[in-house]
Design a protein around this nucleic acid. Structure first.
Length: 424
RNA sequence: GGAAGGAUGGCUGAGUGGUUUAAAGCGACGGUCUUGAAAACCGUUGUCAGGCUACGCUUGACCGUGAGUUCGAAUCUCACUCCUUCCGCCA
């Protein structure tokens, strides 16, 4: 949610942001008009309320019955006026809130301007320590079936297309990665949380998923339960409606959750393997910081995500998203993409964003610098650390051997329970 | 799923239609006293939104949420949510 004061004072900056993101600025004038109307009506109704409050107290003290009745009559009509004004006000505030909630976040000055993903900027490529695959590499789905790690048929039987079952070493490789990454996050200073995988509507609104991304969410038909599309949603709301102690900032969290997304996936794209599905696992990083610390925390989180790939020995690159490709709530985003020789593709495994106070405003997450000081909104940041299926793919394809077996990266061996995954 | 009870400020807790401007206590913060601390005493102590030549003053809203009754609601009515306890069911 943008600050209404910002929209009021710097409408041109907001308009420029909307254009840079490739959106329409049509609602802006309506917002400004409604904002003026709102304040006018609010002032009128408050003056009437003040009158009624005063007179009502006088009525309580009056002894003359005729006088008393006369004043009651007067106040009855004042009450009617207040009711009418507040009905108008309610309508205006609803419209204003709907329009404002649909506005995306302002851009960080470092975010490059561009219309679409072709204008994202590759900042750097880091070569991994894993030995290069010198033979014709296989894709992970082929490897997975051959080594009995992935069962596509039974996944489809259970839940339909894009679902799969991980068998034996496949399941262990994923579980090992999750456990190892959570332990790594712990060392990096993130406190682990185990979270609800279903949340209520308000929780999704505060994280900026609703109302805009309603079509991408799964929810229960009878009760107010929505499946989380990312751990970012419950993590944002962990401190919703709280005023945090400045001594506790920054607060860093990590959490493992499955993620559920209703995506309209085109038939020809990403059909092979486990790259994209309606359900996937992820370890998430999240931070609540003072405004002046969020830039540094963004760099820390990016570095922490990078450390994961470096320790796994994988080659990756860092991409900075341009304005047209940036997420709704983000001011600035780095994507981490890992090289996977089987599918011969850079796979997005992490996205690290500084959200500024955008979610904090929606969720009411504040802090106070000192006793008696005004409350201020915190900044929040989120980053994947990392998305699982694609990390699994990258490990499988990068560490495959000519004989069809897969070497388990050093750091994962005690988590997975073997050095090499091979045909039994 | 059934039954009963409850929800008031940072915490405890009073208030059942008009001196409530939400009592009192605790805590926290500031001060006096002290070599220092404690004790004692004095003072301060929420959030949100308006307005005002504005580091302050002022108006309104907020007693779980939303409606309603009334000149006036923490207080009365209705609906809902959540919590606690008991029963049932269950991993």
């Amino acid at each position: 949610m943008l600050d209404i004061n910002l929209i009021r004072k710097e409408p041109d900056a907001v308009r420029a942001m909307l254009t840079a993101r490739g959106g329409s600025a049509n609602s802006l004038d309506a917002i400004l008009t409604l904002d003026v109307q709102r304040r006018e009506i609010l002032t009128q109704s408050e003056v009437l309320r003040a009158t009624r409050n005063t007179v009502s107290k006088e009525i309580g003290r009056m002894s003359d019955p005729a006088e008393r009745e006369a004043r009651k009559m007067e106040m009855r009509s004042v009450g009617d006026q207040i009711t009418a004004l507040e009905a108008d006000l309610g309508g205006i505030e609803t419209q204003l809130a709907d329009l404002t909630a649909a506005l995306p976040n302002m851009l960080d000055p470092r975010t490059p301007i561009g219309p679409d993903e072709d204008h994202n900027v590759i900042l750097r490529v880091e070569k991994g320590s894993a030995p290069e695959v010198t033979f014709a590499p296989k894709m992970h789905d082929e490897l997975g079936v051959a080594l009995d790690m992935i069962d596509f048929e039974r996944g489809v039987k259970l839940s339909g297309s894009r679902f799969y079952v991980l068998n034996g070493w496949g399941a262990r490789l994923q579980r090992g990665l999750i456990a190892w990454m959570l332990d790594l996050r712990q060392e990096q200073g993130y406190a682990e949380r185990y979270l609800p995988f279903m949340v209520k509507q308000q929780t999704l609104f505060a994280a900026g998923q609703l109302p805009k991304f309603r079509d991408n969410l799964y929810h229960d038909a009878e009760e107010d339960f929505w499946l989380v599309p990312t751990a970012e949603v419950p993590l944002t709301n962990l401190h919703g409606d709280e005023i945090l102690d400045v001594a506790d900032l920054p607060r860093l969290y990590c959490a493992y959750t499955p993620c559920f997304r209703r995506e309209k996936m085109s038939a020809g794209k990403d059909v092979r393997g486990i790259k994209r599905g309606h359900q996937f696992d992820k370890v998430e990083m999240y931070a609540f910081t003072r405004p002046e610390d969020s830039d540094a925390t963004l760099e820390k989180m990016r570095a922490d995500a990078e450390e994961t790939l470096r320790k796994l020995g994988l080659t990756y690159r860092i991409k900075q998203l341009c304005s047209g490709d940036l997420g709704f709530g983000s001011r600035i985003t780095y994507d981490l993409e890992v090289w996977s020789p089987g599918c011969s593709e850079w796979l997005e495994v992490s996205s690290v964003s500084n959200v500024g106070d955008f979610q904090a405003r929606r969720a009411g997450i504040r802090f106070r610098r000192e006793k008696g000081a005004k409350v201020e909104f915190v900044h929040t940041l989120n980053g994947s650390g990392l998305g699982l299926p694609r990390t699994v793919i990258a490990v499988m394809e990068n560490y495959q051997q000519a004989d069809g077996s897969i070497v388990v990266p050093e750091v994962l061996r005690k988590y997975v329970g073997t050095d090499v995954i091979s045909k039994k």
